[in-house]
C-alpha cells in the first residue's frame, strides 16, 4: 500500500503540512487539529513531521468497543464518525500517540490519508513527506537519535518537578 514516507532531513519546519492537514480534515486552518505534527529538535534548528504509521495491529481499531474504526480502501485506519461515541479508548490503546479526541465534536480523529490524496504530502515544498508505495517504517528514529545529545542538553521551561 501507499504510505506517508517521511525524510526528516528534508524538513525545514515550515509547518505547511500542519496547516494543509487541518484544512483538509476540518475545513479550517487550526494546526491543533492537524493529525500530522512537526516536532522541533535541537533547539529548533531541525524539525520532523510525525503522523500515524498505519500499523499492522491497528491498536485503535481493535480497541474500539463499537467497531467505529475500520480500514479504508487505501489502507488507512479511519474513524466512522456516526459510530464513534467518543469514549477515547482508541486514544490510550494507540502506542504511537497518533489518534486524538476532539472535545468539540466529541469524536476521535486521526490520519485517514485524505482518502488517498494526502494534503500534507502535497503541501510539503521539500518532499520531506511523500505518498509512495512502501512498507511503513520508523522514519524518524535514526534522525532523532543523532540529534539527541544536543536535545538532552536543553532546558525546557515551564515544568515544575517535585
Amino acid at each position: 500500500m501507499k504510505v506517508l514516507r517521511i525524510t526528516p532531513d528534508r524538513c525545514t519546519g515550515c509547518m505547511r503540512c500542519e496547516l494543509a492537514c487541518s484544512y483538509a480534515q476540518t475545513g479550517t486552518f487550526q494546526p491543533a487539529r492537524s493529525v500530522i505534527r512537526v516536532s522541533p529538535f535541537e533547539a529548533h534548528t531541525s524539525y520532523a513531521p510525525y503522523t500515524c504509521p498505519q500499523c499492522a495491529e491497528g491498536w485503535c481499531l481493535t480497541a474500539c468497543p463499537v467497531g467505529a474504526i475500520t480500514i479504508s480502501p487505501v489502507g488507512a485506519k479511519i474513524v466512522l464518525d456516526d459510530q464513534c461515541v467518543g469514549c477515547k479508548l482508541c486514544t490510550i490503546a494507540c502506542p504511537y500517540g497518533t489518534i486524538f479526541y476532539n472535545p468539540e465534536t466529541q469524536k476521535a480523529f486521526k490520519c485517514d490519508l485524505c482518502g488517498g490524496e494526502p494534503a500534507c504530502a502535497r503541501a510539503c515544498p521539500t518532499a520531506a513527506i511523500e505518498y509512495v508505495e512502501a512498507e511503513t517504517a520508523d522514519w524518524l528514529g535514526a534522525f532523532a537519535a543523532t540529534r539527541a545529545p544536543r536535545h538532552l542538553a536543553l532546558q525546557v521551561a515551564g515544568a515544575e518537578v517535585r
Binding site: 516536532s39 500517540g97 524518524l140 528514529g141 532523532a144 536535545h151 515544568a159 518537578v161
Partner: peptide
C-alpha cells in the same frame, strides 16, 4: 528534568521501530 517532554524521548529511543 522535563516530564512534559515525552515526544523526543519516544522518537529518539527508536520506540516506533520496536512497536511496528
Amino acid at each position: 528534568r522535563h516530564p512534559f517532554d515525552i515526544k523526543p524521548a519516544f522518537i529518539a529511543s527508536g520506540t516506533t521501530a520496536r512497536l511496528l
